[in-house]
Amino acid sequence: MSTAIGRGLGILQLLSGLPEGMALKDLATRLDVVKSAAHRAVSELVELGYVRQDSETGKYILGLKLVSLGQRHLSTIPLVDLAQPFLDRLSATSGELSRLGIVDESTLVWVAKREVSKFVLRFDPDDGQEVKLSCSASGLAWLSTMTDERAVELVERQGYPALDEYTPSAPRTRTEYLALLHEARELGFGYVADLFELGVAAIAVPVVLAPGEEGVGVLNLCGPSARLDRESCVAMLPDLRQAAQELATVFRDDHVRESTLKRHRFGSADA
């Protein structure tokens, strides 16, 4: 990270999803900067309220200010309300967790889900988090709407998993990833089992506004891999595709949605 802004954003990304926090030396290592530079950046984030330092361990932990800003922004996105009936229907017919991811710049971000055990659509800890493009059904579904070159560019910008991340089957090279991408493009959907997490499987399809365009989001069904084998997921595919097509129609026709698409760069050759 060569700039103060880059280091600050890098720290926020590193601390996301780490409730125990991270030590200064580890932040410096992951950012590939000297400890003094990392200390200056994280100290400013502490001063601004985005990060706090644990008084006992000395580790830096993501503060609630950033979470609050993200939730406030998500709550203003009309598509969350527009998507609720589609997610409700998918969970009701499949009996599985349904989720919606939207394009944000060069990645996908979870914005909403429907749990079978819940009666309302709600935000949860996954919301606002980036989808890991290289080893998720949603990443495969979205990137399958692009060329190999564009897909690999986005995957490698985000990075392949480290050896201690995800499962041993997760792709960690361009060749391994392209094999999965080509299969997803040929099938028209993304499917993974025991790839992102042991015991978990998912199937996803892209939300596309017009034939030949890059996807603007994804619809995903997720559950235990012991229950969601490929055959079971393929049986859910018609409902998933129908929901994606109907959701795309809503996005195209609603004037409120149009302003949201522009704000989130939907409809562009992006994310």
Rank of each mutant, 00 (worst) to 15 (best):
V51P: 01
G8Q: 13
G139P: 11
E149D: 15
A202F: 00
T173R: 04
E47I: 03
I61H: 07
E115Q: 15
S98E: 07
G190Q: 13
K25E: 11
V152I: 14
T173A: 12
L108M: 12
A243L: 07
G70W: 02
L240G: 12
D254E: 10
S106R: 15
L74C: 00
G267M: 04
E44L: 13
K262W: 01
S134D: 08
L27R: 02
G58V: 03
P161T: 09
E176Q: 15
G8A: 04
E130V: 11
I11L: 09
S55G: 07
E96Q: 15
R52K: 14
S138G: 13
S91P: 03
R241Y: 03
S117P: 00
H73M: 05
F123R: 12
L108S: 01
L195Q: 10
V234Y: 04
G128S: 09
A271P: 04
V256S: 09
R114E: 04
A92Q: 12
V51H: 09
L198H: 10
E246K: 06
S169C: 00
E156K: 10
A271N: 10
T173D: 12
L195R: 08
L108K: 06
R7C: 04
L181P: 06
S138F: 00
K113I: 00
E183Y: 03
L121I: 09
Y60H: 13
V33A: 08
Q71E: 15
V51M: 08
G63P: 10
I102G: 06
D124W: 00
E258R: 15
G223A: 02
D81R: 15
T29D: 10
M22K: 03
V42H: 04
G70A: 02
A141G: 11
K59Y: 11
R72Y: 11
L31Q: 05
E246F: 08
A210T: 01
L90Y: 07
P171K: 00
L79D: 02
G63N: 04
S169H: 07
V250A: 11
T145M: 02
Y166S: 07
R174V: 15
E47P: 00
H182E: 15
A244D: 00
S16K: 07
L27Q: 06
Y177C: 09
T173F: 05
D127N: 12
S91Q: 02
E246R: 08
A243Q: 03
V216K: 02
G10K: 07
T173K: 04
L62A: 13
K118V: 05
R7K: 10
S91T: 12
C135G: 04
L228F: 08
G199E: 08
R114P: 05
V200Q: 01
A271E: 09
R172E: 02
T145D: 05
D26W: 13
E44A: 06
F266S: 01
N220R: 05
E20M: 05
R185T: 10
E153V: 05
A184D: 08
R122A: 13
G58W: 14
E156M: 14
D253W: 02
R230T: 02
L90F: 07
K65L: 15
Q245L: 11
A28W: 12
R241P: 01
D164Q: 10
R252S: 11
V256I: 10
T167C: 01
M1H: 15
A92H: 07
E96H: 06
E153A: 13
V120E: 14
K132M: 12
